[in-house]
Simulated assay, not measured.
Amino acid sequence: MKVKRKTPPVKSLENALDILDLLGESSRPMNATEIAQRVGGSISGVYKTLSTFVDREYLSYEQSTKQYRLHTKILRYASSIHQNEKSIQIALPVMIDLAEKTKETVHFGKPEGYYGVFIEKVNSPHTVAVQTRIGTRVPFNRGATSKAMMAFLPEYYFKNFCDNFLDDGTENGKKLVEEAIEVRKTVRRQGYVVTYEEVNPNVAAIAAPVFGFLNQLIGSIAIAGLKDRFPPDVVTSYIPVITQACRKISIQLGATDLPDVYQ
């Protein structure tokens, strides 16, 4: 779903960023023709953009296959962001402990635009585990990690999300807004959210929010695994585990006035 904008975008820049998004989310390199087909641009325009990205080392070009992929320069930028994230440094030991206790994958997500973005994860020791990547974006109204954040967004932020992302003027858009409002109320009341197969097939998750200084929303922590490993009794046992983990992280980040369920 496209986000409505008050000012028109710079089309050439938007097309160039679409190419980076495409290759960043792809598990394989692509040739220029395929890229042009996927992003909807002219082949000549795509060639010019690709050449510029290669010259500036944002993309690598494999002469033998005539395919493009992200350059390691992107990784350097990502590493810089990762290392400077105080919240990750504080959350990671708690996440490792959660993964050891539950034997499931643990995610740390932060809000970005109208999405929750995975910025850290600790893998499950199970042979069959949740397959996700750091950098994955999920809309606020889908999945436990994002819904836990959506519930505690500032009111103006949540309204913008509903008005500019969910409500497209159709009956379905209005229904999505109504559902988001109900989810927000429920999660704010109980302090956590449980979802089944909302992002990936056969995957369940339970998540709770993380707060920081002045009790601002920082993100959320989620425990995720195959839905067969999340029967009601197990989910119930995870509630105090996830909420207390998020409480611990929040206090270390400077939060004071936490939800009652965290007390």
Rank of each mutant, 00 (worst) to 15 (best):
E85I: 05
K185A: 11
E14L: 15
V241F: 07
H71M: 03
Y157D: 14
L153F: 08
D18W: 06
E178W: 08
Y238M: 10
G173Y: 07
K66E: 14
I35V: 14
V241W: 03
Y156H: 13
Q252V: 00
L50V: 02
V234A: 11
F140A: 05
D233W: 15
V94Y: 04
F158K: 04
N84M: 11
P259F: 03
D167V: 00
Y156T: 15
Q244F: 12
K227Q: 13
V94L: 04
Y262V: 01
V183C: 13
G135L: 03
N164H: 12
G173L: 08
I221Q: 01
Y192C: 06
D228H: 12
V203C: 07
L23D: 03
V39I: 14
K147H: 03
I218Q: 10
F108W: 00
D257A: 11
Q89N: 14
S60Y: 09
N202Y: 15
G219R: 01
L98I: 02
P125R: 06
N202M: 14
I19W: 02
K101Q: 14
L17D: 01
S60M: 13
V203K: 03
G219Y: 02
D168H: 10
S26L: 08
R188L: 09
V199K: 07
R5C: 08
N202G: 13
K11M: 15
S60P: 01
A180D: 01
F161I: 04
P125A: 03
G225S: 12
P154W: 06
V199T: 12
F165G: 01
P9C: 06
Y77E: 11
E171F: 10
G143C: 01
V3F: 09
S79C: 09
M1Q: 11
N202E: 15
T7D: 11
A180C: 07
S44L: 11
L75A: 15
L253E: 06
E112L: 10
Y196M: 09
P259W: 04
R229A: 12
K147S: 05
M30N: 04
K248L: 10
T136P: 01
L59Q: 02
L13N: 07
S12F: 09
L258S: 08
P139Q: 03
C246V: 05
R247T: 00
L17R: 09
I242K: 02
P201L: 06
N84V: 02
T236F: 11
A205M: 00
Y47V: 09
K110E: 10
G113M: 08
E197Q: 14
